[in-house]
């Protein structure tokens, strides 16, 4: 079967400011902090080029987006949750420097947010 493409949000992925990236993804949908989203990310990254992130929630979400606040283009990836798909995804992303990871989960016109800081260090001088 020929695969149907062209639902890639170019403007969100090219936005170079976190607020613009969010508004290009979700317009001005209201955002509220929630601890119903389980975000697993390292506190200190072993390698800024490969930072494992996983997100899981029981909320009835339509999409999950992962942003790195201080990245040149903050939106890293977006998962559009399909009917038979669990809201339990993971990916590996790039981080240029210590930054906050922001995860937004979209459910019935609302955005639920959780964040965590991930430190990127030059390493060494271990205890």
């Amino acid at each position: 079967p020929r695969v149907v493409w062209a639902s890639w949000n170019a403007s969100a992925f090219s936005a170079e400011d976190i607020n613009l990236a969010i508004s290009e993804t979700y317009g001005d949908m209201p955002i509220s902090d929630s601890d119903a989203i389980a975000l697993k990310a390292p506190s200190i990254a072993e390698n800024g080029a490969v930072v494992p992130i996983s997100v899981k929630t029981n909320l009835p979400v339509e999409s999950i987006s992962i942003y790195v606040e201080k990245n040149p283009s903050p939106l890293a990836c977006k998962f559009n949750i399909q009917s038979r798909m669990a809201a339990d995804v993971s990916a590996r992303i790039r981080m240029g420097e210590t930054s906050k990871i922001i995860v937004l989960a979209q459910a019935d016109g609302q955005l639920y947010r959780t964040t965590q800081e991930v430190k990127v260090t030059i390493g060494g001088c271990g205890g």
């Binding site: 639902s7 283009s73 977006k78 998962f79 038979r84 669990a86 590996r92």
Partner: peptide, 30 residues
């Protein structure tokens, strides 16, 4: 974009960008 289909249903759809690591790894369940 990354897509997965099973019996004509889309069971995964991800939009990726330049901030995803080289040789991307993804996991999901359906």
């Amino acid at each position: 974009e990354v897509k997965a289909t099973h019996n004509d249903d889309i069971v995964f759809h991800g939009e990726l960008g330049p901030a995803v690591s080289k040789d991307p790894y993804l996991s999901f369940s359906f």
